[in-house]
Design a protein around this nucleic acid. Structure first.
Lengths: 343, 343
DNA sequence: ACACGGCCTGGGAGCGCTCCCAGCGAAGAG
DNA sequence: CTCTTCGCTGGGAGCGCTCCCAGGCCGTGT
């Protein structure tokens, strides 16, 4: 199939290149009658403009990239990443851009990818998820003046545009909720300080404990890997402080916590109330149903796209609010009947 | 950061635009001394060529795309897709191209994606995985004369370049192996005929049964969904034919089969020998260790890339061989000691 | 010393688009 | 009826590259 050009379409429709271009780009100053005729020719010939030429002339491609290490590709099984991708997708639909994922493979892969794609002309903007693997990438993109938005909180980099959820406020809400239910010894189980969001969540917990007039007690705080096993281990450890409530800062950890409590012969929420953090769609149901701080991951993806599009005028940092979703694990709801079902 | 051009670099290095271009593209006819000087300037200025201009002038982008529906993105958790992506990645490294994943969302998403990206100029080639969702996409790409390679076997489309594994030969190997171990009644459990690879595997089984001089018996054949549950159900059903061996045409189904056999009080391999198909890296270990037909998924991804690069001269269809990996579920190996460990 | 080739190099001519400006005709104003 | 205004259209001038051809320089052969 030989490739058509604007010029050729113009000739077929009896107009000039420019007019066809105007039709294609929805410029208003074309007579409706002419527009219709041109559109008919485009339709008939199946003409599609050459993206490279368009990009060269307009300096825009309409292409956004999510750059992530190959290893992370496997994370699509993770509800967080699928939700994020869905959100980015929505954002792109809003703004009419197209979105593509660039997997790269180790440092060399990054070295290949960066110059060819990211640095000049192919991408209008790049979304990068924060994490140890991406710090260097982010720094490079930033110093090259690229249009970048970071999802999450990167370590030690300032002045870049980013989207995140309000980990601290969410934690305050969770902790305050437990305190207001009359729990006296509210413990914390969360990720190690390698994870910056974990630090933010811990800080929120501490703030809320102090604000509630309780004594902060470091023995009631245990950190471990943010997965089911980590939650299990940390919970077993924290039991020595005899908490009557636990704020577990990620849902997978909370799943481990519930198991640890069950195996220790403690009832949830009767003996120990539990609140988690994440509330991702498609995550596994727990027994009892977990009360958790829901973070709007889809919204994060969407906001990242919008932030990328703005002409650097809007705010540089978007922090999305979380929402406490009441389940059956905190005791705020009368669950007599439901628990009977599970017995 | 204002953008540098070839011309600017040329001026800085005291040469012309053309010479800089030659250096960039590794053309041989540049004096080493000049080359070094130009490279120094490029290095110092951090110059990177504009991809759009390059694409416009050369009609190549070095960009390959894997197009898949959003829903399928979640499949990256699936060992098949991660292996495939890893293979594509390797292939791209071999050929110096860059690889990107384009998720699209439903038919409208496809409608947006296709014209803007796939149809003209942005992608040198496209890899599509076969499946019900992609038939229309493949047809469109094909009729537009796009450089497409299909992974797997698309329904009812001919004349396109594709990569697949030899499902039939693999099945013959599996079935023959069971027959040669002296098993008399070799049953088949596999996916429903909606799955073309399942049909091919069934055919291979039938061929091998006939070739071994056995009576094909349709009661010893059960089809179900290609997952653990499907394998479990189909196996329970097939037991009425009293098989002493089972060729289960996907590993997840084989996992279900092993469970069904165990729950029916049958020992593997003593009472019923089992052979599976897939042998993907990172798949869950079974007890006993499954004998299975290993399909080279990484090789498939890699071949797809190579096929895409070739100037339509090589073969249009690449069929990769499989390999039978002996485990403990078929009885070919003396497993007395190992089984003791599991007891 | 002169012609001839080979190696490098420079610059012209696009690639197919967008952007901008000039110019056309029709409509409204004086 | 003429002058201005405005809507719409055509074409020039690039965007930053690659490709190709012409030509400069040098070494070799005679």
């Amino acid at each position: 199939m030989k490739s058509l050009t604007l010029e050729a379409i113009g000739k077929l429709a009896g107009v000039s290149r420019s007019t066809v271009s105007r039709v294609l780009n929805d410029h208003p100053e074309v007579r409706p009658e002419v527009r219709t005729r041109v559109e008919a020719v485009i339709e008939k010939t199946g003409y599609l403009p050459n993206q490279a030429a368009r990009a060269l002339a307009s300096k825009r491609t309409g292409l956004l990239g999510l750059v992530m290490p190959t290893k992370a590709i496997e994370l699509f099984g993770d509800p967080y990443y699928s939700a994020l991708v869905a959100g980015i997708q929505e954002g792109c639909a809003d703004t009419g851009s197209i979105f593509s994922i660039f997997p790269f493979y180790g440092p060399e892969g990054q070295a290949v990818l960066m110059p060819t794609l990211v640095a000049r002309g192919f991408l209008d903007g790049v979304i990068v998820t924060a994490g140890p693997h991406s710090d260097h990438l982010i720094a490079t993109l930033q110093e090259r003046g690229k249009n970048v938005v970071v999802v999450g909180q990167p370590a030690g980099l300032d002045g870049l545009r980013r989207v995140d959820v309000d980990h601290r406020a969410g934690s305050v809400a969770a902790t305050t909720h437990l305190c207001s239910l009359g729990r006296r010894r509210v413990g914390f189980v969360g990720p190690t300080s390698r994870y910056l969001f974990g630090v933010a969540r811990l800080n929120g917990y501490r703030d809320a404990i102090v604000a509630a007039g309780r004594d902060p007690d470091d023995r009631a705080i245990r950190l471990d890997e943010p997965n089911v096993e980590g939650g299990y281990r940390a919970t077993l450890a924290v039991l020595s402080a005899h908490p009557d409530a636990l704020y577990v800062a990620t849902d997978p950890m909370a799943e481990g916590a519930l198991r640890a409590l069950r195996e220790s012969g403690l009832r949830v929420p009767d003996d120990v109330a539990v609140v988690g953090f994440d509330g991702l769609p498609n995550s596994r149901p727990t027994n009892p149903r977990l009360t958790t701080v829901v973070q709007p991951v889809v919204g994060v993806g969407r906001s990242a796209v919008h932030l990328l599009q703005e002409d650097r005028t809007g705010p540089d940092v978007v922090i999305l609010p979380t929402e406490l979703r009441i389940g059956d694990s905190c005791g705020a709801r009368d669950t007599t009947e439901e628990t009977a079902l599970f017995a």
